[in-house]
Each structure stands twice: as structure tokens, then as C-alpha cells.
Design a protein around this nucleic acid. Structure first.
Lengths: 350, 350
DNA sequence: CTGTTAGCGCCTTCAC
DNA sequence: GTGAAGGCGCTAACAG
């Protein structure tokens, strides 16, 4: 298969009657190349539709102006939102973006998969890598690397993370303020710092309000809808039933809403539901979802800026950068014991 | 910057006391390597955490088992859904996926951008490429290439496309059957075959029903929400106003709904709205969106299978593969002139 | 069964 | 200003 017969630098050199090095110089805007030569070479490049081989280039030179993104779950909305922000940011910096996903997902442990991808991409094809919700605590990073929503504990890589604890506390406070006392909690993905912090924030608010923390009101989660559904079912089978459920992210909250619907419960009338993330679809749900915004695209933009700084050899003042969260009140939560007439009034106020 | 000091095949060879070629053989499961040697090398690889450089590998050998995806709009839900399907499919075939997005988007024409990316990726780093909604009619493909939702007219690449004309006809027929006669249409992205076919389907149904086609009921679109919003506003300013609007895709339909809301119209009471795509969020809208499903992830899976077949040197029997569409009736359209009581009855039937 | 050799396309000295 | 030569990490003959 001679499918690789692309135009090479040699072809250009021949056609323009110069040596390959001269073409290379033109390509990289180097030194002084005689004006006439420059133009001639440039013209030849255009005519032949030449593009320098990414593979050869990354092999030879120590930078490629490419940023790698490593994410296992391509159907995780968090990853998609992040991708938007990163794609947005690279436009301003003249970098390219590469997203690499291996088909060997099933065979490897999550941490193993991550390590493989980092060493595959980083330092060769990409100048630096952004990794999303890593499970690994240490990553083989010869080239710069930054994590978004990192693993808990002491990780050896810099990170971007939202003010999860504060955000979760505010949401819980809001629910308490609405009169809720039995507030179920569906946890986040095991091992992630964000999950840990959100649970902390929930406990903080309970504590502060003098509500004793109950183990049985907390069910496990993994930030995915399906798990949210299952855990919500368990919570809804409790007697007395929780009057509100705070899910550690929007996907879990959607799973919760589905579970509640299946039980014949109406939201927010019979159950208040809150999420975390503020995905675009949160606003479109019925009822629209009250949640904590962590402005995911913004996190992507920040991660991009920081990885570029790292690539440029600068050092980060703060190894972990906190991105502020914001409480978003919509219509999926309502005061406990509100009467129907009050309910109507409330609706009309909107 | 010595950031590239990754473990190389040489390091492994030295550590395992063999030549690089032997390591290479182990890496690629080649020939016969003495069992003892194989194990020793394998162990060394693991110990050193070695990963072969993608760049070097793709430069040397004529296949990489990597499929490239080229898509300009990373925030286009169509692309995201497709990505899911492709990512799903590569798992079964042992291929890897690379998504490449350059930051130089603004500077180039769309077709130019596409050409650049194809020649950048294809044949070097990727064995074949899937390109989404290309504007270019010819693409510099030395290696296999397949388009999803191709450009109109005679393109020189194979493609995967839905039965757009039929789908659009069915939706329009449905609206007509509900009693609508003034049906506005918001077109798809200029130049795409799908856009052309959907408009055709709309006209087909009108024709068939003996409803004269009116130019002023068709507004331009580009498959994006914003444009859908603007075009919907124009349609809603018409007197008499259309009683239904069929948007060429779901994003445009969402824009339409927003425009209608802004005009104080209620859906489907004052205006029926239909889309095309059946994005996941279509079901979550209020009212849920009646649309034409083209099962985008499935299109991604099919495209993946076909590009792999092409890579394997097989030929495709049909250069363009049609994927069936399906009419999805939800709640955003309703019979014209239905009385309020009928309306209630209808709701209760669900 | 294993090592040696010759490049893949490109960039970078070092000459001229 | 420009060309020639060497080598990045790897694979594919060709020898042994």
C-alpha cells in the first residue's frame, strides 16, 4: 500500500530548485532567506499543497505546538464541555489540539490507560497534556501535564479544580433554608477530589445547621446517570423518604429525576432535586434544574492557558488553581410543606 | 528543553541485552522470538514503562491502527454524537482514534482548513480519516477517507448519509396531516447534501398534498441555533403567520422555540415546531421535540466500519451508504384548530 | 531465532 | 544565503 505518497519536503525542494534545508527554513520562518527564494519556495509549497508531516516534525524537533487532551469517557458531558473551552482557548494561542482515545479501553485499568496515553502523546506528538479526572496519582510526565478535576490526596501534577466544597455547602444551605431536613446525597466518582469536597460541603452545611449527619442518606455515585438512577431508587425507598436529593453532579441529578418519575413522584412538588455542574441541558430540563455552576468551559480555558505557560518554561505560582462556583437557582427545588396555592403564586412570580 | 527524554526502544534493548529489532519484534508480536527472550523483553518494557513513540512509528510503518476524525465545529452536537459512535466502534476493532483541531480556524476558509487537516493527518499519523460535513468537494486523500453528511453534488469521496429526503417528507406529511398548510421551513447549512435533500423532502410532501410551495416560507439556516432563532423570527413576523415550523435540524428547532417564546407564543398551542436529528436533548425539551431520528452514533459506527474496510484494502460496493431515518412523534406539534378540550384529552391519552 | 543495516521526513549544525 | 550531512525512534529487509 503506497498510500503514504504524500508530498514531502524533498518534492518541494526539487520543484523549487533549492535544498531541503532551505525549504525547512521557509517553513519555520528562520534566519534570512533571500526574499526571492522565500517567495518561490512559498509558492511551490502552495502549488503542491504541501503540509509538513506531523509525525516527522514531532520526531525531530522538541516542540510541535500541539496540546494533547486525554479523557477516557468521551460520552461524559463534562469532557465535552471542557473540550469546547479548550478548543476555544487554543484559537487565541495558535496551538493545535489533539484528542487521543485508544480502542483498548476495556483491557486496561483506568490508571494504566491514563499512563499509557500520557507517555504516548506527551513529549512526542504533543508539547503538553491536559488530563481529565485522572485516577492515577502519579503520571509519567516528562513533558508538562495538568489535570482538570484531579484525584484526591497529594497528586504530583498541577491541577484546575472548582471550589467544590463551597459550592456544595451553598447548595445544601439553600435546601435547608427551604425547610428540608432529610436531604439525600448521591456521591461523586470515588477517588476524585471533587467528589470528596462535595461530600464535605454537604456535611459542612448540615453541621452548621445542627442537623445530624446520617450515613443512610448518602448513596454512592460515579458521576454517571445510570448510577444516579440506582442510588436515587435506594434513597426513595427509605421511610421516611428524603424530601430533597442533592446529586453530586447534573448527570446523577438527571438519573435521580428519572427514578423519581418512575416512582410517580413529581418534582419539585414531592421531591426537590439539585445537581452540580450546570450543563447546558440543566436549563432545558423540566423542571429546570437548580445546580451549582462550575463553568466547565472556563476550566478548559484556564487549563489551556496554564499548560501553555508550563510549556513556555514558566512556573505556576499556585499548583492548583481554584475556579469559583456559583449557585444557580431554578425550579427543581421548592420549600417544604408549601401549600398548593403558594405554589401557584410562586410560579406566577417568575 | 530536554522534555523529550522519554524511554526509547534503545533503552529497552540495552536493559534487556538484546538488539532494538528484537524489541521491535516483541512490540509487534512478530515472527518467532524465543520464549525466554520474549518474556525478558516484555518485562523490561513494563519495568521501564516504555511506550513506543507514535511519531516514530507512524513515520516508519505504513499503518498505525489510528483513525482520524476531522471536524471543524467541536461544539456542534452532531459532531459530539458522532464522536460517541466512533469511539464506541473503535473498541471492537482495536483501532485508536485521534481528533485533530487546529487553532488556526479563523484564518482559513472552511475548505482550506479541511484540506490542511486531511493532508496533515491522513496517511501519516492516521491510516484513514472520517470527515464531518465537509465543504470541500475534492480532498487530497492519499489514504482512505470517508465523509459523514457530505457536500452536495458529485464529491470524489465515499460517504455516509441519512435518508434525508424521505425523513423530511415524512415529517412534512405528518404536519400536513395535522391540518397545517402554512408550514415554515428553516433550511440547513448551505452546500451540504443533507440540507438540499431535506428541503426537497419538504417540497415533495407539499406537492403531493397539492399545497403550493411559497418561497417566503423558507428561510436560510446553517444548522446552528443562533441562525435558527433569527430565521424563526422572520417567519413569525409573517402575516398570516405560519402555523408550523419545520427546522432542518434540532439545533435550529431549539432556536425556533426560543424565538417563539420570545414572541409570547406557546408551543404547540400557538405554533407547532419540528426538528431533525433526534439529539438526546430533544426528548428533554418542554414540550419534547417531534423530530426525525437519523441515529447519529450509528452513522459514526458505520463510518468507522467502512473506513476500516477501506484501510484493509477492500472496496465499498456502494460509495454512499444511506442510513435510514425514523419519524419521532413527541409533543411539539399538534393538530391545527384543535379545541382546548380536545387538547386535554390528547394529553391524557399519553 | 537474533543482530545489522538502511532509511521514513524533517530539523539542525556546520561548512561554503 | 544556501547546501550537505547527521540523526530523532522506529520498522523492515537481509544476513547470519
Amino acid at each position: 500500500m503506497s498510500s503514504k505518497s504524500n508530498v514531502t519536503i524533498q518534492d518541494v525542494a526539487r520543484a523549487a530548485n533549492v535544498s531541503v534545508s532551505t525549504v525547512s527554513r521557509v517553513l519555520n520562518d528562520k534566519d534570512d532567506v533571500a526574499d526571492a527564494t522565500y517567495k518561490r519556495v512559498q509558492r511551490t509549497i502552495d502549488e503542491l499543497g504541501y503540509t509538513s508531516s506531523l509525525a516527522a516534525r514531532s520526531m525531530r524537533s522538541d516542540h510541535t505546538r500541539v496540546i494533547g487532551l486525554i479523557a477516557l469517557d468521551l460520552d461524559d458531558p463534562f469532557v465535552i464541555e471542557l473540550l469546547k473551552g479548550i478548543n476555544d482557548a487554543i484559537q487565541s494561542f495558535g496551538y493545535d489540539l489533539i484528542l487521543y482515545a485508544s480502542g483498548a479501553k476495556a483491557k486496561l485499568s483506568r490508571a494504566e490507560w491514563e499512563r499509557r496515553h500520557v507517555s504516548l502523546i506527551n513529549g512526542s506528538i504533543a508539547d503538553g497534556v491536559i488530563i481529565v479526572t485522572p485516577t492515577a496519582i502519579t503520571l509519567p510526565s516528562t513533558a508538562p501535564l495538568i489535570a482538570v478535576d484531579p484525584h484526591k490526596g497529594d497528586t504530583d501534577y498541577p491541577a484546575v479544580i472548582a471550589t467544590n466544597r463551597k459550592g456544595a455547602r451553598q447548595m445544601t444551605e439553600y435546601l435547608i433554608q427551604l425547610g428540608h431536613r432529610r436531604i439525600g446525597f448521591i456521591a461523586g466518582r470515588e477517588g476524585l477530589k471533587s467528589a470528596e469536597q462535595r461530600l464535605r460541603g454537604y456535611k459542612d452545611a448540615l453541621n452548621e445547621a445542627g442537623i445530624p449527619f446520617s450515613d443512610y442518606l448518602v448513596e454512592p455515585g460515579d458521576y454517571r446517570r445510570q448510577m444516579g438512577f440506582i442510588s436515587a431508587q435506594k434513597l426513595l425507598n427509605l421511610r421516611p423518604r428524603p424530601t430533597a436529593i442533592f446529586a453530586a453532579n447534573d448527570e446523577s441529578a438527571i438519573g435521580t429525576i428519572e427514578a423519581a418519575r418512575q416512582e410517580g413522584l413529581r418534582i419539585p412538588r414531592d421531591l426537590s432535586v439539585a445537581g452540580f455542574d450546570d450543563l447546558p441541558q440543566a436549563a432545558y430540563l423540566t423542571p429546570s434544574l437548580s445546580t451549582v455552576s462550575q463553568s466547565i468551559p472556563e476550566m478548559g480555558r484556564i487549563a489551556t492557558k496554564r499548560i501553555i505557560r508550563l510549556i513556555d518554561g514558566e512556573t505556576l505560582r499556585d499548583r492548583v488553581r481554584q475556579v469559583p462556583t456559583e449557585l444557580i437557582i431554578r425550579h427543581s427545588c421548592r420549600p417544604l410543606n408549601q401549600t398548593a396555592s403558594q405554589d401557584i403564586q410562586m410560579r406566577e412570580l417568575e
